[in-house]
Amino acid sequence: MTTLVIGLGNPLLTDDGVGVLTARAVQEALAAHPIPAVEVIEASVGGLRLMELMAGYRRVVLIDAWVEDTLPPGTVCRLSLADLERGRPPQHLASAHDATLPTALAAGRRLGLDLPEDIVIVAVTVGNVTDFGETPTTAVLAAVPQAAAAVLAELRKGASNLR
């Protein structure tokens, strides 16, 4: 496998599950129309553990919920790691217990882990991440196909780059 797609978030926390739901949609789409060397997983982690999950892959697409009040809920955005350095990062790209993702990646590289250079974040703006529930709010749920399409577009772009 050369590309890893990670759906981040808690599927039990209303809008926070949008990354996981999107990853599942991506997986379904790939079952119908496979793209070679792509693996899809879900995880509710950040920081070091997220960094470690990426080791050995050439490319990673992260999907995460984003609390960003200036955009309406359900807006699909493409972010880079540089975007994480400014402003407020999406929900799971930091960990209160160890490190932010950029710090974790810097540490991993310093220690010689085989980490991807190519990391893209598909973030979906969210509203409710405080109530327990398995279904996102209407606008966020409606954004799942668009977010999945954005991930698939990244994967196809990468696949054609590899050729």
């Binding site: 470690e52 080791a55 160890d98 490190a99 540490a107 310093r110 220690l111 010689g112 882990l113």
Partner: peptide, 25 residues
Amino acid sequence: NILGVIHKVGVAIGRQVIDMRMRNH
């Protein structure tokens, strides 16, 4: 942070920390 610790204790020990995590995971 972890980067500062690596700087202080050296890359070899920092690598052991990550290896400790990864093998137990």
